[in-house]
Amino acid sequence: MRKESILPLSGFSLRQKLTWLAAVLMGLMLVAVNVGVYRGTVDFYFTGVLVVAWINVILAVSLNLINGFTGQFSLGHAGFMAVGAYVSALLTIHLNWPFPVVLLLGALVAALLGFFIGLPTLRLRGDYLAIATLGFGEIVRVVLLNLDITGGPRGLGGIFPKTTFFSAEVLAALTIIVIGNIIRSSHGRAFIAVREDEIAAEAMGIDTTRYKVLAFAIGAAFAGLAGGLFAHHQMFIDPRSFTFQRSIEILVMVVLGGLGSITGSVIAAFVLTILPEALRGMAEYRMIVYALLLIGLMLVRPQGLLGTKELRDMLGIDRVRWLKAEQPAAGALKSHGGDGR
């Protein structure tokens, strides 16, 4: 019997070793940032940028479930985010309910809306669905602009700043775990099957309508959660925070990271949140540089940074599991294999 060490690096390619190295470095950086924020050595401004980055991670990963994994082109993510933001902010302002409760309720209302939007619009495909979801986002914005309770164009102020770096980080991690676990299950494979070939998916016993609606509802729930975090971070929200532009920003993160890669969405959300800040020194040229970087990247890697790959694939974690699962069966396979055909 062969013993395997905890890290069987001998079996890895150079590429995988480098990925391990990068992953470890990123992990260390994450630890350093956490320690820094905890000790208060990271300044207030940059901590704020990091909070926004985590919020963007939630938005990008949840939109990836809809656009990347299920292949439904949604341009309405800012709408769901807005619903979560306003619901949770109003509950905090008027009732002063506990933060976790208002976040949850914001997410639930957004999910419900995602469900009801999903039902009629999912008969549409591709461009038509994109237009319909775009319309939905605009409706949400206009409704918020005209209601009294939302403060109309004046917005909602005086929301208690309850979002911390750590709450945003924990909820982003939760989002990654929940959506990741869904994807690596039979339900997740159903989402992917819908993306790959709807007719074949139906023929394989997958209720495609159910999974499309489900993708919208789950995606909307997490967008609502992100909205809640956003409201309690900014302390002020108005309909301008949730325009079509916002949906596009999230979409850019998803496409840049790779449609169908959670890891890609996380990295892209961080890069695209921090990059404009880092480019601040270039003053008015910074958005041009930003746009050029995006164009350049899309030319070099049209499938996004990671395509559909995940960190675990690149680290070879699943491959190791494959090998372990195979070893006892390897002999048995040969003895009665090949009697087919």
């Binding site: 039979s186 159903a190 998916a201 394989m204 997958i206």
Partner: peptide
């Protein structure tokens, strides 16, 4: 993917 309908666990279990 084709074994989908034979898995009995729900989303929460996943």
């Amino acid at each position: 993917i084709a074994f989908h309908s034979q898995s009995r666990y729900n989303l929460a279990a996943a």
